[in-house]
Design a binder for these strands. Structure first.
Ligand SMILES: [Zn+2]
Length: 460
DNA sequence: ATTCTTTGACCTACC
DNA sequence: AGGTAGGTCAAAGAA
């Protein structure tokens, strides 16, 4: 309303600006219709197969490179967190929840997702902690720090991320965006934004936190450029002025044949990347360096991209992102769709290599985003003069990964002796559908989830 | 010729 | 219902 000063593209009534540049445009409308309307199509199909919220987004603040996350062995995904104590432990969890309610739907994925409310949206999540890029820093996350005791909560949600409580516990449920940290820092995401199966090591995340800006400082503008280069090839398919921001947003799509991953890039007038949002997960490995053509970045640089000093992490399947330096925001989840990701290779390493592929992924990103904005997140972030670039990666949530057709809710967390993982954090998840059952029954249905190792145990 | 970018119009969701 | 915003399409142009 009334604002949008200059739409870089799009919607303005043709009459006004009078830029007859492209007179032709006969009705695309027609074409679109004929084609089944592309635009809408994307969203239209996604919804819902799973009751679970799809759209997890991780927002990684500038400086943070997605690549690290991508490669990391651990699962970080789900950010949809509900305000639960357990999760709450994780400070982050709280952050976002604009929509924190997990819908409790008893529904095995088979079921059509007909129930309307399921879509709700995503619980967006944001980490505000400043993540540092250093790979091996003193992990802040001490198992001990976290509450390891079992906590019961009725409304806790399940997010692995939760462990990162180390992040800022202060963050309250409201996502007050805080981009603290380094001003003007160009995005550091150099890494592959390959949103892999979503696993991000919590440990890494924590580390990042701890080290904080250390790495950030070293980053230079080049980084910004690199952030755009994440190892994948992208095709720009649109650009638009976004309301709360001066910066135009560019839309990119992964050029890989069956890959539906999209990337939104916002750059400030001076060329710095202010925000990067990845939607979806690549269902293919990163293209060879020499073949890559980066998208947000300058075409000329083809193939040169090196993922920044971030260390040699890159192509390892185990690492999800090269480094995390700034903030990370996560938002709902994407679809689990195990499907046949039929795609080529797919070797990603462990279990679910490259999800996605079905194009279901994003559907409600919009709404989510809007909500976020309305919530003031973006506004806050953007409003700041020195806003750090953020990177958002929508990944598959843990739920998705563990998707067994049921929805699970975390209701407790504790340290287990003997647990191979240093962190020893167990997340117990119980199927919603079982809630109605007598306790004695429930006890048998616990699902234990070791967040670090992604090991899941079913006690049936 | 091929590939990528630009950009106004279109579409859908949301308010 | 109408308006707005965000996302997408696809013709046209550029490289
Ligand atoms: Zn891809």
């Amino acid at each position: 309303m009334a604002d949008s000063p200059n739409p870089s593209s799009g919607d303005l009534p043709a009459g006004s600006g009078g830029s007859p540049e492209k007179p032709v445009l006969a009705d695309r409308r027609v074409a679109a219709l004929a084609g089944a309307g592309a635009g809408a199509r994307y969203k239209a199909m996604s919804p819902a197969r799973l009751p679970i919220s799809r759209e997890p987004c991780l927002t990684i603040p500038a400086g943070f490179s997605p690549g690290a996350l991508l490669d990391s062995p651990v699962l970080l995904n789900n950010f949809k967190v509900e305000p639960s104590p357990t999760t709450g432990t994780l400070s982050m969890a709280a952050i976002i929840n604009k929509s924190t309610h997990l819908d409790i739907l008893p529904s095995p994925r088979d079921r059509s997702a007909g129930s309307g409310h399921e879509d709700e949206d995503s619980r967006d999540f944001e980490f505000k902690p400043h993540l540092s890029c250093q790979p091996a820093g003193p992990a802040v996350n001490d198992p001990n720090h976290h509450d390891t005791s079992m906590q019961n909560h009725t409304s806790s949600s399940s997010n692995l991320m939760t462990e990162n409580k180390s992040l800022y516990s202060q963050e309250s449920i409201h996502q007050t965006a805080n981009i603290s940290s380094v001003p003007n820092q160009p995005v550091a995401i150099v890494g592959p934004s390959d949103n892999m199966p979503a696993d991000v090591g919590t440990s890494e995340m924590n580390q990042m936190n701890s080290s904080e800006n250390a790495a950030q400082e070293t980053q230079t503008e080049n980084i910004a450029e690199k952030s755009a280069e994440d190892g994948y090839n992208w095709r720009k398919y649109g650009q638009k002025h976004v309301k709360g921001s001066e910066n135009p947003r560019s839309y990119y799509k992964c050029t890989h044949p069956n890959c539906e991953v999209k990337k939104l890039l916002e750059r400030s007038l001076d060329g710095q990347i202010t925000e990067v949002v990845y939607k979806g997960i690549h269902n293919h490995p990163k293209p060879q360096p020499n073949r890559r053509l980066s998208a947000g970045a300058v075409p000329s640089s083809q193939g040169e991209e090196r993922y920044d000093g971030a260390a040699p992490v890159e192509d390892k399947p185990s690492n999800i992102y090269p480094n995390l330096c700034n903030q990370v925001h996560s938002a709902g989840m994407i679809e689990p769709v195990p499907g046949p990701a039929s795609d080529d290779d797919g070797d990603g390493g462990g279990g679910r290599p490259y999800p996605g592929d079905d194009a279901n992924e994003d559907d409600d990103l919009d709404s989510k985003r809007r909500k976020m904005e309305s919530a003031g997140i973006d506004a806050a972030l953007m409003g700041k003069p020195n806003r750090e670039p953020r990177v958002v990666v929508q990944t598959v949530s843990e739920v998705d990964i563990l998707d067994d057709g049921y929805r699970w809710r975390k209701y407790g967390q504790k340290v287990v002796k003997g647990n191979p993982n240093p962190r020893s954090v167990l997340i117990l998840i119980i199927n919603f559908t079982l809630l109605c059952l007598p306790l004695f029954c429930l006890s048998g249905i616990l699902r234990e989830f070791e967040s670090l190792s992604l090991v899941t145990l079913f006690r049936l």
